[in-house]
Design a protein around this nucleic acid. Structure first.
Lengths: 89, 89
DNA sequence: TTTATATTTAGATAAACTTCTAAATAAGAG
DNA sequence: CTCTTATTTAGAAGTTTATCTAAATATAAA
């Protein structure tokens, strides 16, 4: 779960996640939404993939990226836990 | 919210948050739970404070740290949103 | 098989992060 | 006032991260 938290710590990566909530997208489509180079986006996609927050699947020339909500749910669970357990809550 | 996500990206800081769900604690009590130096813990506390995840209050020689669940709830909200919006969910 | 498109890998650089030790500050006790 | 305890600030070292350009790989089309 540490990898997931680290992956979520970057605003570009969080925005990629937001994009993927709408529908799956190719690496190029994702890169088009940002003002940073394709190799940089590829790096971010890799960080998200290592954290299992996204899944990739090649179809022809394109590689399609999809959200994996399972890890998102684990992080959600951690946060829900500390929030609910907190005596201030 | 970026500061909160960045603050949550470190395992020591997440553990500090977990400790503070039980009850408020002084900087020294927190430091005692780890094998890293007090200045390092002080630094982590500062990162959490900058992110408004915790609040500090000096009482005499001690500084007491308390969770601020408001920011935690914001992060929770973001995650809940992307998880629920996701077509895979 | 050559060319074009999509994406990643390699290697470099600069900034940010974690940690340490030593020194400084703040408050209370004698 | 001096001493002790609690905590932070300063400054440095080593590591990781984000980004870039150039080159490599993979697939499809001509």
């Amino acid at each position: 779960m540490n990898d997931a938290f680290k992956a979520l710590a970057d605003p570009t990566r969080r925005q990629i996640i937001t994009l993927l909530t709408e529908r799956h997208r190719s690496a190029g489509e994702i890169a088009d939404q940002f003002h940073i180079s394709k190799p940089s986006i590829s790096h971010h996609l890799n960080v998200l993939k290592q954290a299992h927050l996204i899944v990739d699947e090649r179809r022809g020339q394109h590689i399609w990226y999809t959200l994996n909500t399972r890890v998102l749910q684990e992080v959600l669970g951690w946060l829900l836990n500390v929030t609910l357990l907190s005596h201030e809550a």
